[in-house]
């Protein structure tokens, strides 16, 4: 294994630079997310960073109910990227109750709950 930061730190540093990348396995060709030391499909440590298309499909969604004075409702989703990996995120630019499994979305880098950079999604084509 190489010296230097592990995959979590590499991912976070890329995100801080405005770059969203996932891993791809040189052993079996699988894409990998979240970032890992070895490929969960084949065990290979030959993982390189690649830019995903950013396109994905909503797999499941929930709306977290919160009082308006505490910021109001927000959505949490699981997105299946076209590369075959899943991630948690949120969808901006659409009413929460219009988000449903099957909705096509595209990724960008927005702000997470802690104010740091986070991968977020919008409906593909910028609908609504």
């Amino acid at each position: 294994m190489e010296k230097g930061p592990g995959p979590d730190a590499v991912f976070a540093a890329k995100l801080a630079d405005g770059v969203f990348e996932i891993q791809k396995c040189g052993g079996c060709g699988s894409h990998v997310f979240h970032p890992r030391v070895i490929c969960p499909a084949c065990g290979s440590a030959d993982l390189e960073w690649v830019a995903p298309t950013g396109r994905g499909t909503i797999y499941a969604r929930t709306i977290v109910r919160r009082k308006p004075e505490r910021g109001g409702d927000y959505n949490v989703v699981l997105v299946d990227l076209d590369e075959g990996v899943r991630m948690m995120s949120r969808v901006d630019g659409i009413a929460h109750d219009e988000i449903a499994a099957g909705l096509k979305v595209s990724a960008s880098i927005g702000e997470g709950a802690d104010g740091g950079p986070a991968v977020v999604f919008r409906p593909e084509g910028g609908a609504s």
Partner: peptide
């Protein structure tokens, strides 16, 4: 780590999904 930015309620939102 990869869920915290989206503030799911723990553990409720996982079961909601």
């Amino acid at each position: 780590t990869y869920e915290a930015p989206y503030k799911p309620l723990f553990p409720l939102s996982s079961y909601a999904l």
